[in-house]
Amino acid sequence: MCLPLSARLRSTISKVGLPVAAVLLVILIWQLICSLGSVPKYILPSPLDVAGAFGEDWQLMLSHARVTLTETFIGLFLGIAVGFLMAVVMDRFAIVRKMIYPIVVVSQTIPTVAIAPLLVIWLGYQMLPKIILIILVVFFPITISLLEGFSSVDADTVRLMRSMGASRMQIFRYVKFPNSLGQFFSSLKISVSYAVVSAVVSEWIGGTEGLGCYMTRVRKSFSSDKMFAVIILISVISLVLIWLTSVLQKVCMPWERVNKERK
């Protein structure tokens, strides 16, 4: 597709420009309310206050963010590994699938905030309970999506592979696994944002470092401006990670681009 420049420019403006304008408008109104309405800073800090908080605590926030990100990445990585392993075993053995599937689903109905304190009691205040919590949250979407991907494989393709004498392992490697990549990445985008949130929640409950701890501290001192700042920082981290996941998806699935263009 090759639109003339002005049309393309117009489409970019409506795609990017409009939402940006909306956000700027909200921030402007927010600032006006704070400046004109004399709302106390500890109830609603103005956007300028929040920006000031960033400037003041930037170094501190970064060092906390480093801890949170470390937990997130370790938990995410292990969660993917656990999810992948479970999906493979459940796909291979129907019995295991029937036994474990309901347990896995029920386990997801327990709220994260309820498990976090228990994990702290059992495992202490270090990084371990936080990583375990992230694994618990992350593995579920990964397992379900991979399982879905494995079993949605075209039966004729499997028949063809078998007629070529392919082993179960080869069918997995050349058909089932690549077939489930699309679903895997969709669920990874969910998992990534869950992982960040879970890290923060687990830091609320216990610990001395991380954005969750920082958040608890500034809340206790009624520094709402810093509270807003850290919330924004967490959102930005999530968004960046989701974006990185899409980039990774494009790199891992180069055929997607071609197939999309054809549709």
């Binding site: 075209d154 004729d156 393709t157 028949r159 063809l160 007629s163 070529m164 050349y174 058909v175 690549p178 077939n179 990549l181 699935m253 055929w255 197939n259």
Partner: peptide
């Protein structure tokens, strides 16, 4: 060797 009506080419290869 066996070939089916659909070409069965894997879209990701």
């Amino acid at each position: 060797s066996y070939m089916l009506q659909k070409d069965m080419l894997l879209p990701y290869r």
